Simulated assay, not measured.
Amino acid sequence: MRVLVALGGNAMTGPDGSATPKAQREAITVASGHLADLVAAGHEVVVTHGNGPQVGNLLVKNELAAHVVPPVPLDWCGAQTQGTIGFTLVDTLEAALSARDAERPVAALITRTLVAADDPGFTHPTKPIGRYLPREQAQALIDHGERWEDRGEKGWRRVVASPEPVEVLETRTLLVLLAAGYVVVAAGGGGIPVVRSHGGGVHGVEAVIDKDLTAALLARAVAADVLVIATDVAHAVAGWGTPDAHDIGRVTLAEMEAYAADGHFASGSMGPKVEAAMRFVRSGGRRSIITSLDQLATAVDGHVGTVIETPERER
């Protein structure tokens, strides 16, 4: 099968959330072992990944150096983290495949994601990013054109647009690589956000695209059979934090939509993952799965995790 795996932030940092280079490489090495098991089993694999902690580190550098050098814009942050995480995944995945006698070429693409210039997010940015700062420190960044909001006792925090992904522009290149037998890493952090220029080209914009929504979009664009959203829990949970809490196993799209409509998934954590999983199946995908990274090899067949499927008669 053709499988798109969306790696969550836990696959990019240490168990304690550490984002040191050593901790990141060790975590990515573990993730690559699970990815290599999929490839060794005969599946075609596309990998997307988060980049929140890595972009967070760059934002801190922006803050500390704002009085000396201009801050790096978010599209540049996305490109830089795609490059760093991408080459680390290529290195560790090649090694993991070799250890399994399953050598395959691996490539990482610096990937742009088209968004609409008139997306409401640009006029009313609401996505908080980075750390809280006192007003006097935030002011230096406000002076560079960034938008910060007073969040009360915690301090000021930057807010940016989080527009809907429209198209992954490097999809054709990705398909060429897949046809040539490559395992491909693409659309890290949801992709570098770009909009169409009046002249027909594109240019980067200050925004953060939800990585899981881009993963669902890309999975359909490359005709993936299965979308696996790998996170740090084995299942999505209904009734989280209540006596009625229970794991969600195999469900139809309609059943999962009902859970979502009843407000079972928090917007800042499981909500986007569930929405992405539903979008993939809703748009014609065969199966989407939300599960933990260590279940990856067995998840593809739909035997573990939260599995969303449309009945055969409805496809």
Rank of each mutant, 00 (worst) to 15 (best):
L38G: 04
N62L: 08
G52L: 05
V115N: 05
E44Y: 02
A41K: 10
A40V: 05
A41F: 00
G14A: 09
Q80C: 01
Y259F: 15
R250C: 01
Q137H: 13
N51W: 06
W240I: 09
K61E: 14
C77G: 11
E26W: 00
L89A: 04
I229F: 10
T173E: 01
V205W: 11
K22C: 00
L218M: 10
W156S: 06
H49E: 00
D212K: 03
T291Q: 11
A207I: 13
E63H: 06
H124I: 01
T310H: 00
T126R: 08
E206N: 15
I28T: 09
A207G: 04
R220Y: 02
I129Y: 11
P243H: 13
G17Q: 14
A179R: 15
V194A: 01
P128Q: 10
H264Y: 04
R220D: 08
G188Q: 05
I248E: 01
T84R: 08
G56C: 06
I110Q: 09
I142Q: 14
E309C: 00
P272E: 13
V160K: 02
G14Y: 12
A79T: 12
A234H: 14
G42R: 15
D225P: 01
E26V: 13
V226P: 07
V176N: 12
R287T: 14
A107N: 01
R315S: 04
D37G: 11
A236E: 07
V159N: 03
A108P: 08
A261C: 08
M12K: 06
S32P: 02
L227T: 10
P21I: 09
G155T: 09
T171H: 05
T29A: 15
D150V: 11
V307L: 03
A299L: 03
G181E: 08
V194P: 03
L64F: 01
H264P: 07
P53D: 12
E314A: 02
A179W: 00
A65E: 13
T113E: 05
G263M: 09
T214G: 04
D143Y: 06
L114V: 10
A234M: 05
M270L: 09
V184W: 12
E136I: 02
F87M: 12
T84G: 05
E153C: 02
H34N: 15
D118R: 05
P21R: 14
V168S: 04
R279F: 00
P120T: 06
K211E: 08
P73R: 11
L217Y: 03
V168T: 01
D91G: 01
G145Y: 07
E44T: 14
H43Y: 11
T123A: 07
I290L: 14
G83V: 13
V222S: 06
Q80R: 10
A234D: 15
I289Q: 12
T214L: 10
L174W: 09
R100I: 09
A40F: 06
V90P: 04
Y182W: 04
T113M: 08
W148P: 13
A180T: 00
R287H: 09
V3Y: 02
R315P: 00
A277S: 15
R112S: 06
S267K: 15
E312L: 04
E146I: 01
D212L: 03
L89W: 05
V55K: 06
A27L: 14
E275T: 15
A99Q: 07
L296Q: 04
L35T: 06
